[in-house]
Design a protein around this nucleic acid. Structure first.
Length: 300
DNA sequence: AAGACGAAAGTGGTTGA
DNA sequence: TCAACAACTTTCGTCTT
């Protein structure tokens, strides 16, 4: 191993920031080298077999880049003029082919992922769910499921599915608003791609929604924990099964605000939860009856 | 005047024959 | 493929604060 020297101060000590792939001089902070290999691994090993087969170098694989971050480009922009004129012809041809290899699917996925990133940052989707959504979209595109449907609706469906899978559910309302798409259409494509790709989506739980709704309503921690308590009790008594989880979450929050003297109107709660006041009323009546919450509300 | 309540009719999706 | 169905929505009139 030959020793590197910092060109500006001559120091031989460096730190390597593996996350961004930079080698930095310890003394003067000069960036000596960029794009160094990340020695970490982005995959998980469940057995030594798997570990062997997955071992590789390069940037981490990611599904949120259309080529999974593994693109190969023939020639940087300026390279064409560094070779002799006879070579240049061949070089040019290779470049052209490279462009052609990028098929219609790749192009489509590229645009789709751009859209996905836009909406993802708008809705603050966790990274893991974004990766999942990208993966689902890619599979859908490769199976030709996008044909006959709008690209956006498939992206939206993939995102919806990914969010639910990772227990960060977004409501169809939120997603349809972000995409400016019809709710029904997203629901339809969502079900379609889940069926075709064999994705099994479990029903969501009221608890998955509580924290997000609560923070949108700017509720105090005390009220939130009360709502969580109510949900847990309700689930124990099987009041929640078969009911829409968002309605249950909304009702629990509404009751919690009454108990903790932090009143919100049914309208306010209904709006953030994407259900109607009527649903809240129906649910919260059941909650009060079955959990004997009546006394708690009166003893404020 | 705003919020809560509840009845009644309508919606879209699921299920089972 | 169709009808029954459960949950939820929309709409609207009434009561309460």
């Amino acid at each position: 191993m030959n020793k590197m020297k910092c060109p500006s101060c001559g120091s031989e000590e460096f730190t390597v920031d593996r996350r961004v792939g930079e080698t930095i001089c310890k003394k003067c902070g000069n960036v000596i080298d960029e794009d160094v290999i990340d020695y970490g691994q982005e995959w998980r090993e469940f057995s030594s077999d798997q570990g062997q087969s997955r071992r590789r170098t390069g940037n981490p694989l990611t599904f949120t880049k259309h080529d999974k971050g593994m693109s190969t480009r023939i020639g940087k922009p300026g390279d064409l003029y560094k070779v002799s004129s006879s070579e240049r012809k061949r070089f040019y041809r290779l470049k052209k082919w490279q462009a052609r290899i990028s098929t219609a699917i790749e192009r489509n996925v590229k645009y789709a992922l751009a859209e996905l990133r836009r909406v993802g940052s708008f809705l603050n989707i966790p990274h893991i769910a974004m990766e999942e959504a990208a993966r689902i979209y890619r599979s859908a595109a490769e199976k030709g499921l996008v044909r006959g449907r709008s690209m956006e609706s498939v992206v939206a469906g993939a995102l919806y599915a990914a969010c639910r899978r990772h227990r960060f559910p977004r409501t169809l309302d939120e997603i349809s608003e972000a995409f400016t798409l019809d709710k029904k259409e997203i629901g339809k494509t969502y079900r379609f791609i889940c069926r075709e790709l064999g994705i099994r989506i479990l029903p969501t739980f009221p608890l998955d929604y509580i924290y997000r709704f609560a923070s949108e309503l700017k509720l105090s921690p005390k009220t939130i924990s009360k709502a969580v308590e109510i949900i847990n009790k309700a689930q124990g008594k099987e009041i929640t099964s078969g009911k829409g989880p968002m309605g249950v979450a909304a009702a629990a929050l509404y009751v919690a605000t009454l108990i903790c003297n932090e009143k919100k109107t049914q309208r306010e709660v209904a709006d953030v939860a994407g259900v109607t006041e009527v649903t809240i009323r129906n649910r919260y009546k059941e909650l009060i009856d079955r959990l004997n919450l009546g006394d708690e509300i009166q003893t404020i």
